[in-house]
């Protein structure tokens, strides 16, 4: 038998066994430390620990206070953001009164054109109004009120029994004032100039109506839309919805 080889394997296994024994020994060996403090020392230690505890408690309290402060701030800011958004949306939908730069347009009958015996034109046809409105929108008018009636996206202008109605509001007597609001003075001026040279004037004139476009006005007040907006066919988009 190869003695050297035997010794080698035996030695290796012996090392392994020794290692295991040492680990087991260490694991089993528990720290032996006797508590030799007397009552006063114990009391002192207790006092220290209590102080530490009270410190920790006060720290916790301050942190909680901070947390609640942050929380309330966050809530408020959320609310504020929501309110802002709501306000913005309302403004866009035409539910708020707007005061800002803009122009006013007067529609009045042409007195020179009045013929004896012929009835006086005192109705603006809805087609004319629609064309005017389209033209205004084309020239970047933001807010429009016709005879104190705010027009929004769903506004209908139609002829009912010979009367021109805007969302149920009857345009009765001439002259009629149309208020147009824009974003700033510059665009108000531009709009005024564009309306002055537009064909709308001619179109109105063929119906014996005169369009007087004012210059840019820094503050005109456009009333809010005062009916409720009925939404029949709109639905909110489902979150993550495909189609």
């Amino acid at each position: 038998m190869d003695k050297k080889k035997i010794n080698l394997s035996l030695t290796l296994i012996a090392i392994l066994v020794g290692f295991m024994i040492a680990i087991q020994f260490q694991t089993m060996k528990k720290p032996v430390e006797r508590d030799t403090r007397d009552v006063w020392q114990l009391r002192e230690a207790l006092l220290q620990e209590k102080e530490l505890q009270s410190n920790l408690l006060s720290e916790i309290r301050s942190n909680e206070e901070k947390l609640s402060a942050y929380e309330s701030k966050r809530k408020q800011s959320k609310e504020q953001a929501l309110k802002d958004t709501l306000q913005e949306l309302k403004m866009e939908a035409g539910l708020t009164e707007i005061s800002g730069p803009g122009i006013t347009i007067q529609i009045e009958p042409v007195m020179e054109d009045v013929q004896l015996g012929a009835p006086l034109t005192n109705v603006v046809s809805p087609e004319l109004l629609k064309r005017l409105l389209n033209e205004l929108n084309m020239y970047e008018a933001k807010y429009v009120a016709i005879d104190g009636q705010r027009t929004i996206n769903t506004t209908v202008i139609r002829d009912i029994n010979g009367e021109t109605k805007i969302d149920g509001h009857t345009l009765k007597s001439l002259p009629i004032e149309i208020k147009v609001g824009v974003d700033d003075m510059k665009s108000a001026e531009k709009l005024s100039n564009q309306m002055k040279v537009s064909k709308a004037g001619d179109e109105f004139f063929t119906e014996s109506l005169r369009l007087t476009v004012s210059g840019p006005n820094p503050t005109i007040i456009i009333p809010a839309y005062d009916h409720s907006i009925r939404i029949k066919y709109m639905e909110p988009i489902k979150e993550g919805g495909g189609s």
């Binding site: 030695t11 296994i13 012996a14 090392i15 020794g18 040492a22 680990i23 260490q26």
Partner: peptide
Amino acid sequence: WLPVMGLVIGIILGL
């Protein structure tokens, strides 16, 4: 003597 040495070495290593 080698295995005994090994045992001692293992114990020392473990400690």
